[in-house]
Amino acid sequence: MLINQLATRSGVSTRALRHYDRLGLLSSRRLDNGYRDFEECAVEEVRRIRLLLDIGLGLQAAAEILPCFAEDGELTACAEARQQLRVQICEVDSSIAALQQTRGLLSGTLDNLVES
Rank of each mutant, 00 (worst) to 15 (best):
V43R: 07
R103C: 04
R22H: 11
A81V: 01
D32Q: 04
S28M: 12
E40D: 15
L6V: 11
T8M: 07
L113G: 00
S95V: 00
G104S: 11
A7P: 05
L51Y: 13
A7W: 00
L75Y: 02
R15W: 05
I89T: 05
R82Y: 02
G58W: 04
A62D: 02
G56H: 07
D93S: 15
N4W: 04
R86A: 12
Q100G: 06
E91S: 15
E80S: 14
A70C: 09
E115L: 06
S13A: 00
L25S: 05
R86E: 14
S94Y: 14
T76E: 14
A77R: 07
D21R: 02
A97T: 15
C68H: 06
I3P: 12
Q5N: 15
R48C: 04
E80L: 00
L25F: 05
Y35N: 11
L75K: 11
L85E: 07
T76M: 14
S107E: 08
V92H: 08
A63C: 00
V114G: 13
V114M: 06
A79S: 15
T14Y: 03
L75W: 04
E45I: 00
V87Y: 03
Q5Y: 00
L113C: 10
A70F: 12
S107W: 10
V46Q: 09
R82C: 09
L26F: 04
R86Y: 00
E40R: 12
E39W: 00
E71R: 06
Q84R: 15
D54F: 07
G104Q: 06
D54Y: 07
A97H: 12
T102M: 11
D54C: 09
L106W: 02
G56Q: 03
S10C: 15
D93M: 14
F69S: 01
S10R: 07
H19R: 13
G24V: 01
L26A: 02
I3Y: 07
E64F: 02
A79L: 08
E115V: 10
G24H: 01
Q101M: 07
N33F: 05
A98H: 09
C41I: 05
I96P: 13
E64V: 10
I89L: 06
F38T: 03
A61Y: 08
L57N: 04
L105T: 00
V92D: 10
L85A: 05
C41L: 05
R18S: 11
S10K: 12
S28H: 15
R22M: 01
G56L: 00
V114A: 08
E115S: 03
D37R: 08
A63R: 11
E74S: 11
Q88T: 10
I65K: 06
E71V: 03
F69T: 01
L6K: 07
H19P: 15
E91L: 10
G73P: 12
S94A: 15
R9A: 08
C41D: 13
N112W: 03
I96M: 14
S10D: 08
A16G: 04
R18P: 13
D72Q: 14
L99E: 02
